[in-house]
Design a protein around this nucleic acid. Structure first.
Lengths: 213, 213
DNA sequence: GGAAATTGATTGAGTGCTCACTCAAAATAT
DNA sequence: ATATTTTGAGTGAGCACTCAATCAATTTCC
């Protein structure tokens, strides 16, 4: 069931245009970075797992950081797209209830998380000690991008119908995230599966917190 | 204003018994690990910052991991104490409302967070890729320790008075954490101060979610 | 069509460097 | 004088990264 509004995915164009060997390197690096961390993985290990000579990594990605960037950049672009393609054409999908919106939003985010678990784990871990990444994250949250505008439009519509508390959208987003965040971190770092019942509970909780009163 | 029930602090006994040089090493290591991460900090750097010869680190802490353990273990013990001293003498403090309990609990946790920001940051970052630490965390959550028993007793008392939803205590604790967690992570990793208004909002949110209905 | 030449991708031993860690010697305390 | 602590140059290992040699594919010429 596709989302009415969101459908954020990681752009695979760059990856698809790579040669077989380059894909093997990326895939092996993702496995190892997600399992042991960037700093604890050697390029020799990556090359061995990819079935490729070590030098190949450097002729393709320049250095180890370049390889990390090739993995992380698509994640960052998916979360904070900088190109505002179609930014003018925001047509909020007509949600008929807050609960419907919340289900749609949370399902989409969960699908994104599950489809890209490893790279998101690498991304989140990298944020902790990577100043540049962290700064751009703070700066771009939330950026004036298509996704955000679309969401804001939907929220404003719900507010107008008195189906949603009249808070500013950032506070609403933070509230949703604080409800979902625990499950997300448990899934990312503690291998705890997110059951559909848990998701439904989170949706209910968020809905309850944000219902107009 | 001290907490009625909790007052969890990090045990400084081991630290206080150390020599001046050992304290200097620990302090320097905490600064550097919190800023750049364990894997990105060299023992040479730590020694220089501590104003001590590099060899001193190894004669005192055996190896680099030993130094990390000396920093992290007190945090782990503070969060999951294994000694059940006074476990039998649980006398739940008489909270008169869920809101009072929540304020007390959240204030105490926040004070703990603010008093030990750096070491908690190191601890949390280490959990991500340290299997042993992660496993013991899952296993010990929540351990049958004094803190947990006391909290459970308070919760049960509130349930009996129909001031609290009749969920099991772990679910209640997870709910509180998921509300507080966002602020905590923002404080730890994004240097976002937790304003008293934010704390109050979190307390209100958690109270609202957990009020008997 | 096939041999030769050209080009670009791929290789992995080699390089310099930094790392955690050692240990004999020096400094300090007893 | 003896015992203990502190020192920092030294060590082997492992790291990211290089580069000349090798291989494979394509083009050129007869």
């Amino acid at each position: 069931m596709p989302s009415k509004t969101f459908n954020i995915t990681i752009d695979t164009q760059a990856f698809n245009q790579m040669t077989t060997k380059q894909k093997q390197i990326i895939t092996a690096a993702i496995d190892l970075f997600a399992e042991k961390g960037y700093a604890n993985t050697s390029t020799k290990e990556i090359a061995a797992k990819a079935g490729v000579a070590e030098g190949n990594i450097f002729s393709t990605f320049k250095n180890k950081r370049g390889l990390l960037a090739a993995i992380i950049n698509p994640v960052q672009r998916a979360i904070f797209p900088t190109t505002n393609q179609g930014a003018g054409a925001v047509s909020p999908a007509p949600y008929e209830s807050l609960h419907e919106f919340m289900t749609d939003f949370c399902r989409d985010r969960l699908a994104f998380l599950q489809a890209n678990r490893q790279v998101i784990k690498i991304f989140v871990a990298e944020i902790i000690y990577n100043d540049k990444l962290r700064q751009s994250l703070i700066k771009d949250f939330p950026a004036s991008n298509r996704c955000w505008l679309q969401m804001a439009a939907s929220l404003d519509q719900l507010k107008a119908q008195k189906l949603l508390v009249n808070w500013d959208n950032i506070k609403i987003l933070k509230t949703i995230w604080s409800v979902m965040g625990g499950s997300a971190l448990g899934y990312l770092f503690f291998d705890q599966p997110i059951k559909t019942t848990t998701l439904a509970q989170n949706v209910d909780t968020a809905t309850r917190l944000l219902t107009y009163h």
